[in-house]
Amino acid sequence: MSVATLPSLILSVEPPPAVTPAAATPDFHTRPWVHARAIGGVAALGLAAGLAGQTEALARAPAGLAVGAGVVLLATPALIVGHQFLGMKAAPASLVSAVADAFARAGIVALGGAPAVLWLAATSEMGPTLGVLGLLGIGAFALCRVIANLYDVERAAGGAIEGATGFALVWTGLAALIGLRLLYTFAF
């Protein structure tokens, strides 16, 4: 026995477009609300880690913000200068927005991880350790995302991919070393 076909519910509406991987020029111009959330996320992670500690541990809560800001301020000029000196095609503004986007995304991850760190810090004395591990984790995520973003902006500008990827790896290595040094200063 067959059932009469039910009428379509389409009311002058097109079927949704198929989801395809983004191949257009990447747009990293995130809204201020996203940046605020990212900054809040890193601060929340630090505060959660310092919750169960003494005043000294709480004072180290903004360490993540200091480390992130330090890496961006210290390493980004080297990125722009080196990128242009080597004749790569992406514009400096694209490079800056690629870095900002990566750090913004990492900050959002930090916000998501803050409740977990809060619970772990509240039930143990692992707070400061978790704070440092959390910062290392989101720092690694940010730098991996930077590599992906730099690859995308160079590809969109029509540049050589192999050179761009190699340069991105070298630069993120430098940024990682700067970040570790700053983390040691602010968190210990």
Binding site: I108, A110, G112, G113, P115, W119
Partner: peptide, 19 residues
């Protein structure tokens, strides 16, 4: 219940951060 609920914001954040 507690661990999956506490990690829910992290799952959501990672999904957003990964696009």
């Amino acid at each position: 219940l507690l661990p999956p609920l506490v990690v829910l914001p992290l799952v959501h954040a990672f999904a957003e951060a990964c696009g």
